[in-house]
């Protein structure tokens, strides 16, 4: 954590979170502080509860033990300040690109002119101009996730929750989207919680990486990423801190999935 981040008040505080699905404990006593304007990646093997943790941060799931606070207020249902980007995009097939992006603002009953303005802004931002009237089934995976990102950003969220958003697109598109997310985020600096199982993706994007282990899901280590911004994918890969950090996290992940080196 950088000194400036520490000086800022915590945006999200998760305290002693545990969650069971039947007899399976998916999260065990997870405590985590995320600061205003920080980009945090939750990283771990499948089954480590990283998605479950993200969903408790949005109030989509309530923990069996412990609590989540956003700006000091207890989270019991999805809060106004947060927006989620989903792994399988979560677009409504019966809504066009514009209608999908407008959807959360329609629910919030914003005035139509304001909605139109924000929809246009967000669609431009993710480079989907010209596709406003298209239905999602006409779009590629990468374009669909751009719609998902536009939908979240149009709300102007203070907390952006991203659940393996690039896991369902091809490797090339994935890096393209990472680069775009970097440049967008470095302009707006929302607080971001980004779930991934890719070490490279975590190092590329995050200020801080929370490495989790499975059975039960627990926080294993938290790493600061000492790579200055603005970043590009190339500048991150070239950075002297990149390889050592990658090796350390890789070791953690092996321990975390219960295998020996």
């Amino acid at each position: 954590m950088t000194a400036t981040a520490q000086a800022r008040p915590p945006k999200v505080v998760a305290t002693g979170i545990s969650k069971w699905y039947g007899a399976l404990e998916v999260l065990h006593n997870v405590t985590l502080e995320i600061h205003q304007g920080e980009f945090v990646c939750l990283l771990g093997p499948s089954g480590c509860g990283k998605t479950t943790l993200m969903r408790t941060l949005d109030g989509l799931i309530l923990p069996d033990e412990g609590s989540v606070q956003l700006d000091g207020a207890l989270i019991t249902s999805p809060p106004r300040q947060a927006a989620v980007v989903f792994q399988q995009f979560g677009l409504f097939p019966w809504k066009t690109v514009s209608q999908n992006v407008a959807f959360p603002m329609v629910l919030d009953r914003l005035p139509p002119t304001q909605i139109d303005e924000k929809v246009k802004w967000a669609i431009d931002l993710v480079g989907l101009k010209g596709f406003e009237a298209a239905y999602p089934d006409r779009l590629s995976g990468g374009m669909r996730q751009r719609v998902g990102i536009a939908r979240a950003l149009a709300l102007g969220p203070e907390l952006l929750l991203m659940d393996e958003p690039f896991a369902s697109v091809d490797a090339y598109t994935r890096e393209l989207l990472q680069a775009e997310l970097l440049s967008i985020w470095e302009r707006f600096r929302q607080t971001v919680v980004f779930v991934t199982h890719s070490i490279d993706e975590a190092i590329t994007l995050a200020d801080r990486i929370v490495v989790m282990k499975a059975k039960p899901g627990e926080v294993l280590h938290i790493y600061d990423v000492p790579i200055e911004r603005p970043r590009t994918i190339a500048s991150v890969r070239r950075h002297p801190a990149y390889e050592p950090l990658r090796a350390k996290i890789w070791e953690d992940m092996l321990t975390g999935s219960g295998r020996e080196m």
Binding site: L60, F86, G90, V106, L107, D108
Partner: peptide
């Protein structure tokens, strides 16, 4: 999709409509 709507704070009426 119902989870998406829930995350954007849809009430029961909005859930039916959208």
């Amino acid at each position: 999709l119902t989870e998406v709507a829930r995350s954007f704070r849809a009430n029961e009426m909005a859930m039916w409509r959208h």
